[in-house]
Design a protein around this nucleic acid. Structure first.
Length: 283
DNA sequence: ATGGGGGCCTGCCGGC
DNA sequence: TGCCGGCAGGCCCCCA
């Protein structure tokens, strides 16, 4: 599901109805998502003001006045949808509860934020804001790909001696946190690197070239509101548009878009995930 | 330590 | 129309 650009799109969509706003009621409709929901979750959210809304990798963190933070992960199929938002001087109505609406936050201004997740690979937890980085789900994450700690020197160091394919290495959240299957495929295409190449066998210049291209593809995707294939929606239910810009993802059998390249996009399964790539211009 | 595979869930799509 | 296999944007866990 949602990779970094989709999660960032969701965060930005939630900002106007969450940041600085009060949660007047929380509905928790089942005891677990991927894991059990935290004990007393509804009570710990009720009456809390949201001081800030952050993103770390593919996680959203809502910092509460209580000193706790609500951790949200969308898994593969998770959505955060806003209804009843003030538009001009009237409220839109709230739709009836849908299948898989697992958690609903009722905000003081009238907005309602619904977490819907059909496959329930998503997660929520409450943790102390001050020690959020030590949370088991966050503790071993690598640097943010859009941050300064992710740079050419760092990536060269991390990939050196790695025997795993570059595709798998970039999906490893301990190396860089936030990439998923789509954006790894697209970044490798832009860098003209075969997903099958061993990470440690790439020369330094090749690895270095990946850094700005990863940033570029992520920034373009954020700009487009993410990618919508099946499940992903922005918080207003709108689709993202970056899927229109895919150059390889989901394009098995289609001609390569690189000018002058006569290759055909292949789908190769690597450790259970599809890699889409052009065997002619990605080496 | 490292790399690969299984499993968690539900829904959708294509083929028969 | 119905059933079945395959596939899906993530990630933890276990095994060799």
């Amino acid at each position: 599901m949602p990779e970094l650009p989709e999660v960032e799109t969701v965060r930005r969509g939630l900002l106007p109805v969450m940041e600085g706003q009060l949660i007047v009621r929380a509905e928790v409709n089942r005891p677990n998502l991927r894991w059990p929901l935290p004990l007393g979750m509804a009570d710990r959210l009720t009456g809390q003001r949201v001081l800030g809304l952050r993103r770390r990798s593919k996680y959203i963190l809502a910092d509460l006045a209580s000193g706790e933070s609500l951790l949200i992960h969308l898994g593969m199929s998770g959505r955060m949808l806003i209804s009843g938002q003030m538009m001009g001087d009237f409220h839109h109505d709230h739709p009836a509860l849908q299948k898989h609406d697992h958690v609903v936050l009722h905000m003081a201004q009238g907005a309602r934020i619904t977490f819907n997740d059909a496959r329930r690979f998503g997660a929520m937890d409450l943790l102390d804001t001050g020690t959020a980085d030590a949370h088991p789900l966050l503790a071993s994450l690598g640097p943010e790909p859009l941050g300064n700690d992710f740079n050419e020197t760092y990536l060269i160091g991390r990939l050196k001696d790695r025997n795993t394919p570059i595709k798998s290495a970039l999906l490893d959240q301990r190396i860089v946190a936030g990439l998923g299957n789509i954006y790894v495929c697209e970044a490798l295409y832009r860098a003209r690197i075969s997903p099958l190449r061993k990470a440690g066998a790439l020369n330094k210049a090749t690895v270095a070239s990946l850094v700005p291209l990863i940033r570029e593809v992520l920034l373009e995707a954020i700009e487009a509101g993410g990618s919508s294939l099946r499940d992903f929606r922005q918080t207003d239910g709108e689709l993202g548009y970056f899927q229109k810009t895919f150059q390889v993802y989901g394009k098995e059998g289609e001609p390569c878009e690189t000018p002058g390249c006569s290759g055909t996009i292949l789908r190769t399964v690597q450790s259970g995930r599809s890699s889409f790539w052009c065997p002619s211009c990605q080496r």
